[in-house]
Computed example of a mutant assay.
Amino acid sequence: MMPRDQFLRDVIADLRIAASFVTILPVAPSKPAADGAVARATWALPVAGLAVGLTGALVYAIASRFGLAPNLAALLALAATALVAGALHEDGLADTADGLGGGRTRERKLEIMRDSRIGTYGVCALILSFGLRWSALATIANPWAVALALCAAHTAARAGLPAFMSQVAPARPDGLSASAGSPPSRSVAIAFAVGILALVLALGPGKALVSLILLALSGLMLARLAIRQIGGQTGDILGAFEQTGEILILLVAAAVQIGG
Results as ranks from 00 to 15, higher is better:
A82T: 01
L128N: 07
W144G: 07
R108T: 03
L88N: 15
V47F: 04
A147M: 07
A77S: 15
L68P: 12
R133C: 02
A74G: 15
A94K: 00
C124Q: 15
V38Q: 00
V38K: 01
G103P: 12
S116M: 02
P29Y: 01
V22D: 05
T139Q: 14
S135I: 09
D91Q: 12
L88R: 15
A97Q: 09
W144I: 15
R114I: 03
L93P: 14
G102I: 08
G103A: 09
L150D: 12
L132A: 12
R104V: 06
F66H: 11
S129I: 08
P46F: 10
A141R: 02
L25V: 10
Y60N: 03
D98W: 00
P70K: 08
G92S: 10
H89D: 15
V27D: 02
V47W: 01
Y60G: 01
A73L: 09
A74Y: 14
C151F: 07
P32S: 09
A28H: 04
L128E: 10
G49S: 09
G122F: 07
P29W: 00
A145K: 13
A149E: 13
E111R: 00
A28K: 05
G49P: 13
V38H: 03
T42P: 06
L132M: 11
L128W: 13
Y121K: 02
A136P: 11
L54S: 14
G86Y: 07
S64Q: 14
Y121F: 10
W134K: 06
A138Q: 13
A138T: 13
L83Y: 02
G56D: 07
A63K: 05
G53F: 11
G86D: 07
A79T: 13
A147Q: 06
A33W: 04
A73P: 11
N142Q: 14
A77I: 14
L132K: 04
V27I: 04
V123F: 02
G131D: 03
I140Q: 06
I118Y: 02
V59W: 00
I24P: 06
L50R: 06
S30Y: 06
Y60A: 02
W43D: 05
G67T: 14
A141W: 01
A48L: 02
N71P: 14
L50Y: 04
S116N: 05
Y60R: 01
L54H: 14
E111C: 00
R133S: 03
G119N: 04
